[in-house]
């Protein structure tokens, strides 16, 4: 089923445009429901990601219509362009995702702990900092560096797999 392959990209697109994890997850569920309900309308000649992202665009626009202005960072034009980029890079993103599963296990314990606190508990940087004896800014920088490490690892893994 194609959906499982594109779902991470669809969710990332939604997360990139919708503030709040649960709101994005709700939107993803509606997208998935639409994919099921309208699967008879899908044209196999077209990229599945583009078809699925189409439903996600609708969800983003629906969110934008109800969200406060303070939650809208980008214009509709940029939202559309970003969606197109997700579609264009879907194969690359999927390969990245596969590499990430390996790379994230290779992270040092402390960085994994920070990631864990950040994602699992959604704790503000200040709380994480207090737990780890760091400053909030240091936590932010560390998270940034963790992603840099991940990106490098992912790139290395992808190059390795292409040899």
């Amino acid at each position: 089923m194609a959906w499982v392959k594109v779902q991470p990209a669809v969710f990332s697109f939604l997360r990139s445009q919708i503030t709040g994890y649960h709101d994005a997850e709700d939107a993803l569920q509606r997208v998935a429901a639409a994919v099921i309900q309208k699967r008879g309308q899908y044209d196999p000649a077209q990229p599945f990601i583009a078809w699925a992202i189409g439903f996600a665009r609708i969800e983003v626009m629906r969110y934008r219509a109800t969200a406060g202005r303070d939650k809208l960072i980008f214009s509709e034009k940029v939202v559309e362009l970003v969606a197109d980029s997700y579609c264009a890079q879907s194969d690359h993103l999927r390969e990245m995702g596969q590499a990430m599963e390996y790379c994230i296990k290779k992270l040092p314990d402390r960085q994994r702990k920070i990631l864990n606190l950040h994602y699992m508990r959604s704790e503000p940087g200040a709380d994480i900092a207090e737990q780890l004896g760091m400053t909030a800014n240091a936590v932010f920088v560390t998270l940034h560096r963790v992603r840099t490490l991940l990106r490098r690892c992912i790139n290395a893994q992808m190059q390795e797999s292409q040899r």
Partner: peptide, 30 residues
Amino acid sequence: LESLLRDSPEHRDRFVRESYIYHQAGELMR
């Protein structure tokens, strides 16, 4: 950021990849 994303396909692609890493890391952690 809006300006960069609007005007530069390269920045958009990088934005998408960075976002994907960020969000997928969260999903994997979960």
